[in-house]
Structure formats: C-alpha cells, structure tokens
Amino acid sequence: MLPVIEAGTGPFTQPPTINPAVTADWLVAFLQDEMRARRSVAKAVIGLSGGVDSAVTAFLCARALGPENVHAIRMPYKHSSPASLADAQLVTDALGIHQHTVEITGAVDGYLQLEPEADARRRGNVMARVRMVVLFDQSAKYAALPVGTGNKTERLLGYFTWHADDTPPINPIGDLYKSQVWELARYLGVPRELIEKAPSADLEADQTDESDLGITYARADAILSHMLEGYSNEQLAERGFTEHDVRLVRRRLDGTHWKRHLPTTAMLTNTAINEFYLRPVDF
C-alpha cells in the first residue's frame, strides 16, 4: 500500500491570514509615502477608542512617523465605557504618543436635546459624526492628518456610519479583515487586553459587534474573502458554511455598496467629475 496524501479542505472555512511582518513593513511605508512624501504632513491624529483597530493604527503611525508625531484623541460620550478610556490609555502609555481627551457629550446632547425621540441608531450616528468633527478640527490644530481606522470587514458589512468613521483621507488597515487586524495587533505588540476583549462600537451599554452583526468576525471574514473572489452562495454552502451565515453576509454586502462610494451625482455634461473628467487621486 502506498501512503496517500489527501488535499485538505480545512483552510477554506478559516478566516484569511497574513504575514504580519511583511504587512507591517508595507503599511509603514504606505503611511510615510502618503503623509510625508505626497502631502508633506509629518503628524497624524487618530481617534483612539480603546479598540484594536485604532490601536493597530496608532502602532503603525508611531512606527512610521515617530511617537512624537502621533496625536491620539479620546472622545468619550457620557455613556461610554470607562474601560474604553483605560484601554486607550494602555496604547498611549505603550507608545509614548501624545494623548488628548475631548468629551463629546456637550456637542452631542446640544443637538439631541432638540431631538428627544431619536432612537439608539440615530444617537449612535450623531456621536460618530461629532467625533469626526472633532477629529478633523484637532488635525487642523496640530497641523496633522486624520488617519482612518476602519477595517475591511466593517467596511464590507456596512457596519459604520457613512461620512463619519470612513472620512479620514488615508487608512492603513482598510484592506485588512478584522481577523487580520488581530493578527497584526499581536505582531505589533498591542496590549493583550485590547486584542482579547469583544469588539464593540461602544455606542450603547453592553454592545458588541458580533451580537449586532449576528455572526462572528472569524466566520464573516472567511465568507467575505470568498465572496469577493467570486464564489456563489451555493458554492460556499457546499464548502462548509451554513446557509444562514452566507445569506446574512451576502445581504449586508449587497445592501451597502453605496456606503463604499462617494455621493451619487447626476451626470449632465461631458465634463462630469469622475465620469468624464478623470484624474487619479495622487495626480
């Protein structure tokens, strides 16, 4: 009898992985090129939430620009978890970057007192948009560029506030699935507390991303990575994913294409911007 070596099917249902050392070097080079070489900006501001995405972004920026050129902005609302503030502090302490705390309660409540009927979703969106107002203003204050912290999973699932979390002009981790961000975080030395806690938008008490989404990041990442390669729902179900999970991810993906684009503009002329008049972003 000859020994038999069988092709495995295991990795297909696992989330995509990265080589974190190569990825980190690449993203550091990206940040240096986009900020210093292209824009002549030496400093970054980052909204530091206490979560792993903004922590990884801060670690990358500190590597790329030097910790003295990184300004972390904590923007708590009155209901934000104190643990989030403490976890953000761990990042600041680990890196030796600047940290500023700007309470957004006054700005948020100043508006929401006019809208007392606003539900949790509206309130969360207001908070996210106020944070962007603060972040951009802080960037002007420090002559810095806001750096985005949205990951690929939340971008693909539409799990973010449009024209809020996604507004910074550059984003080093936007093409990394959440599972890959965790992998990069471990490599970069992000404090363990941030990697191990359940991800949360922290817009409501006891909120977690995975309970909001109805699926784990590991499973969503595996499904999304294959959907983007062109696999049909049927093929994914054949290969070990549940129909429920596949349909859930497909629905969120297909329902949120608009969130990954600029506003749709009516075309009226043959010089319509980004339709006829085309210039690359770095031209």
Binding site: L2, V4, I5, E6, A7, G8
Partner: peptide, 13 residues
C-alpha cells in the same frame, strides 16, 4: 496538495 520528494506516494484531490 503535494507529495514528498522521496518515495512512492498517491496524491489525491
């Protein structure tokens, strides 16, 4: 899937 360099084997996929 891949077999080692040495020896007879069957590779299935």
């Amino acid at each position: 899937v891949q077999a080692p360099a040495l020896g007879a084997h069957i590779v299935r996929a």
